[in-house]
Design a protein around this nucleic acid. Sequence first.
DNA 1: AGAATAAGTTAGTTGCACCTAACTTATCAT
DNA 2: ATGATAAGTTAGGTGCAACTAACTTATTCT
Lengths: 228, 228
Amino acid sequence: MSAARAIKIVPGLSGPVEDYLKAIYDLERSGEPAETNAIAKRLSIAPPSVSGMVRRLARYGLITHEKYHGARLTAAGRKAALQTIRRHRVIEAYLTEALGYSWDRVHDEAERLEHAASDELIDRMAKAIGEPETDPHGAPIPTREGTLKEKAVVTLASLSAGATARVERVSDDSPERLRYLKELGVVPGATVKLVERAPFDGPITIKVGASKHAVGAELAAQILVARR
Amino acid sequence: MSAARAIKIVPGLSGPVEDYLKAIYDLERSGEPAETNAIAKRLSIAPPSVSGMVRRLARYGLITHEKYHGARLTAAGRKAALQTIRRHRVIEAYLTEALGYSWDRVHDEAERLEHAASDELIDRMAKAIGEPETDPHGAPIPTREGTLKEKAVVTLASLSAGATARVERVSDDSPERLRYLKELGVVPGATVKLVERAPFDGPITIKVGASKHAVGAELAAQILVARR
DNA sequence: AGAATAAGTTAGTTGCACCTAACTTATCAT
DNA sequence: ATGATAAGTTAGGTGCAACTAACTTATTCT
């Protein structure tokens, strides 16, 4: 009954298991172990279901889990998560580059295909579009082997007035937000200047190209930039 | 608890259900209703499992089923089967045309992707490679709406000596066979001449281009041709 | 026609992945 | 330090999709 028991040929892990690993990977990036309720919320699943799955993932050696104290990926779990994330991001990149998808519509498609695509297909897709280093939203693509070098980034919300930065990455989980950001010109690679910040976490005024826009603090926290 | 109950967004039907419908569609093409054991064999599943699923498919209105007398697709079932088959064949064509897959390796990949790909993706793939009418093995691609015009074909085994024909389609379920056929030049579009047939269902000698080959009756039955 | 064989079904079980209801453990605030 | 609240878990149940063992129905062969 080890993880290798699964009969699926492709990733060896079921779709749901891969989804949990991705969620835990993401939650863990902030340093803390991934809490049951946080996983539940992210996956839109009831907390007791998460308790059960977490037990199984621990049994499979993909996470460690102290009761009532959250889950942490093991090396094996992290590798599996990153391989799934690689599949997801390569697919997103391919759909936009090769098949004309807009950047706000690739997420859902990738979310399903990532569980069905073989490593060979992913490699061929990556090759066909020139081995990109990021997905359309600027998220870095892990290597085939399941490693990832994250760039040093800060949120747009954390910049001080007058600072200039390069947009590195935006969160991809809301099509509406993505469409709005594209309208503003806030896309990876763009240069933004922080013109002014209202106090008490108020709106931030930014300059992109020739035009200025006011964005809420909430939204600004979803935009990752590198200082210039 | 109707078929519409399923929460899956993409095809509305689970992967296994789609596989059963495809199998039944295929078995039914020979006129007879699809027998339980035949479905079981095709899907490598135990007969009792098929009995159970067949009951469910009938409940969903996708097939009709008389106990002990096999299953027949309803109009809805046929449409669903053909839409899955369309996905499968478009994917096969796309993988060979756009991503450099060889024709003997597309089947397995398509078998998994067909359950995860949205109709939009399939349409974009089809468009990207010029709306092909057949997959790499010569099988016709159903329309978006789930209709299909089958060509009038006979098996190579049924030709009489001296006849010339065009290869229309070969079965795609064995990579080894596909590699061998490619070696012989027996690919859709090729012209073959039946030189000689040994009696008692013995080997058949065919001429493809400049070279002659002897093929067994078994293999010849897997090659569909149109008389010239 | 009746027995042998083939085909199909029912009965009962399993693992996965979810659910709700009820309970326990941890944390935080007074 | 204790009681409220938040977080997490156990208990028990569901549907799907598979399985084996045992039985029933249909067909075939003499």
